[in-house]
Amino acid sequence: MNEQISTPGASLEFEKTYRDHYTFVWRTVRRLGVPPEEVDDVVQDVFMVVHRRLPEFEGRSSLNTWLFGIAYRVIRDHRRKVAARQRREQLASGARPPTEPDRKLSRRQAAHVLDELLATLDDDQREVMVMADVMNISAPEIAEITGAKLNTVYSRLRLARKAFERALAEFRAREGGDLPWMS
């Protein structure tokens, strides 16, 4: 398992895990609201943890679910630190919201639209909807990852979908119903 290659600590199994699942982790990090300029750093943070913990993986869940659990915790940790940093920066100079030209530009891409809609949900709802509807993780597995009860997961998912649909309807009303991803 720990066959060494050119880099200390980088086993062949770790490299395979990285190459097979890089896109999955990258997508998870993107959809869970990490700003684009910080995605690379957070993805690497996830794989640093994976590298340390891969020998503990017992196959009790799929590797994707296990990876998602790690990404979920790394992102939460990251979010807390960013929030603390932003609070400090706001105290120093005041908040600066995204500029309108940037927002208009981003709307042309489906990924940005999805992220904009997901951003209307609170963190718990966003996480459960991303897991269930974007990453196709089952409700029991979501319960295991988040530590929430299964009924809570279903309840959050129901509320998340409602809020998402509401945001989507508002978006379509604003954009005149011309949705690029439906053409």
Partner: peptide, 25 residues
């Protein structure tokens, strides 16, 4: 409650198209 077709369609397109750059990994 299931997601609407428009919502599913959006998510599917993003899953299909929103990928890291070729050399990013």
């Amino acid at each position: 409650d299931e997601l609407s077709e428009a919502a599913k369609s959006l998510i599917e397109q993003v899953n299909r198209e929103d990928l890291p750059a070729a050399d990013q990994a």
